[in-house]
């Protein structure tokens, strides 16, 4: 199951977790748990928008990353 998920990530394209869960025949919660597992093991990396750096951005004081409302992306690390 974990291998299938990694294959899907490496195959390319944009996927959302709900559709991925349907494709792999499991739940969104399990997909999220597996994504976190793959990240902990260094196979994928996640990005939260704006996390990369806000220096100079005039809106930075207004951002609230803890609120979790920013878009989160997961990406394979090993298919470069």
């Amino acid at each position: 199951m974990l291998e299938q998920l990694l294959t899907e990530i490496r195959n390319g394209g944009t996927l959302d977790i709900t559709k991925l869960a349907v494709r792999l025949g499991t739940s969104s919660q399990l997909i999220e748990a597996m994504l976190e597992h793959l990240e902990r093991n260094g196979l994928i990396q996640s990005y939260v928008s704006c996390e990369a750096g806000c220096q100079g951005c005039n809106l930075q004081e207004a951002c609230n990353l803890q609120k979790g409302s920013t878009v989160r992306l997961w990406q394979s690390k090993s298919n470069e």
Binding site: E8, I9, R10, N11, G12, G13, T14, L15, D16, I17, T18, L20, E32, L35, K67, G68, S69, V71, R72, L73, W74, Q75, S76, N79
Partner: peptide, 19 residues
């Protein structure tokens, strides 16, 4: 060349006026 992203889609919810 293509590379993949998986995106977390939050559930829709009623907006919070205070936020």
């Amino acid at each position: 060349q293509r590379s993949a992203f998986i995106m977390e889609m939050p559930l829709y919810h009623l907006p919070n006026a205070r936020t």
